[in-house]
């Protein structure tokens, strides 16, 4: 097993853990189920979000990139970009 395989296994769900996660996009107001990832940065990568452009919130807590996500609590992705040609 390579280091990369090992990292992927750590980032993915563990035996007995939930395999999906509820995600709420605060800007579009949409909710959905996605593949559960343990780390915030992996979830954002899956969803195609640049970490600089969103806040990740779970259970009223602001999370950093290396934080572990709780599998049973909905995650809010809150985009921070605004503005037009001002």
């Amino acid at each position: 097993m390579t280091d990369s395989d090992s990292q992927t296994k750590q980032d993915n769900e563990r035996p007995g853990e939930k395999t999906t996660l509820s995600v709420y996009n605060a800007q579009t107001g949409t909710r959905g189920q996605v593949v559960y990832r343990r780390k915030v940065h992996r979830l954002l990568k899956d969803l195609g979000f640049d970490p600089e452009t969103v806040l990740v919130i779970q259970g009223e807590q602001l999370l950093t990139q290396d934080e572990t996500l709780a599998p049973d609590i909905e995650v809010e992705i809150r985009p921070v970009i605004s503005g037009g040609s001002r």
């Binding site: 800007q27 452009t53 969103v54 602001l62 809150r78 985009p79 605004s82």
Partner: peptide
């Protein structure tokens, strides 16, 4: 940055309009 301001608003409990302006 935009992210720092959003984090400030969240941490201070400021209730703001999250949706993007539909005109932009």
């Amino acid at each position: 940055t935009e992210k720092e301001m959003a984090a400030y608003a969240f941490l201070k409990g400021i209730d703001y309009v999250v949706h993007e302006c539909p005109m932009s």
